[in-house]
Simulated assay, not measured.
Amino acid sequence: MSMDDLVGLLRVHVHRGVNLAIRDLRSSDPYVIIRMGRQKLRTRVVKRNINPVWDEDLTLSILEPLPVKLEVYDRDIFSTDDKMGDAEFDFKPFMEAVKMRLNDDLPNNTIITTVKPTRTNCLAEESHITWTDNRVIQNMVLRLRNVESGEIEIKLRWIDVPDHKRK
């Protein structure tokens, strides 16, 4: 990966999990892994909590808008960590909004685009891409797949990389 190909950085704020699956006796020790291409990032483990709050920022380097996969695991000490579901999100609509190069004339919290839940995406509810605090933001509630229950709330934020190419 050369830095010349870098489009920008996608800051994924992993806010919280809601009603996650129980994988230990009465609870779980969940953490989230985010993957895109060869990049893999993870949150800390929240002990004994099926409604964990991570409030953690993970930053992906974006070369092309590949799908982002989110996986939730239950941390186990003496055995392999148990899967607690996964989700995928497409940030192409978000990138389209970023490319609009909006400016500060827009009122705060203007909705640029609304992405509706479909059978093929993991959205649990409508997701708004907004112009908030002079940047493009997208809040998402992702319904986890391959598991009996659970949702993960995340927020996307774009970070421009200063133009470093020689003119």
Rank of each mutant, 00 (worst) to 15 (best):
S61V: 08
H13F: 14
D24N: 08
H128I: 07
A97L: 05
N51F: 08
N146S: 09
R38I: 14
E153A: 13
S149G: 11
I22T: 11
R44G: 15
F78S: 12
G150M: 00
Y31H: 11
D74S: 11
A97I: 05
V136Y: 01
D163H: 11
T118I: 08
H13D: 13
I34T: 06
M1R: 15
L156H: 00
Y31S: 14
V72A: 01
M100Q: 04
E153N: 15
S2T: 09
S28P: 03
T113H: 02
K167I: 11
E88T: 14
D81G: 02
P65V: 05
A124M: 07
L25E: 05
D81N: 10
T80K: 09
E153K: 15
P65C: 03
L60P: 04
T132E: 10
R101C: 09
T114R: 05
N121M: 02
K155R: 13
R35S: 11
D86H: 15
E64D: 11
D55P: 00
D29G: 05
L123A: 03
P162M: 01
M95I: 09
E151I: 03
V14Q: 13
R119T: 10
K99N: 12
V98R: 02
R101Y: 06
N134H: 14
V161Y: 09
K99F: 08
D76G: 10
D5C: 10
L102T: 02
L123G: 06
T118Q: 08
R166A: 09
G17K: 05
R44A: 14
K116G: 04
A87V: 05
E64C: 12
I111E: 11
E56W: 09
R35L: 09
L106N: 00
R48H: 11
M100W: 01
T59S: 13
V161K: 10
V12W: 12
T120W: 13
M1F: 12
D163I: 07
E56P: 06
S2P: 06
D105W: 09
A87N: 07
K99V: 07
K47G: 08
V141H: 11
R11L: 14
S27T: 09
M3H: 12
M36K: 11
R166V: 12
T43W: 09
I77T: 15
L58D: 04
D133T: 10
T110N: 07
D57R: 14
V98G: 05
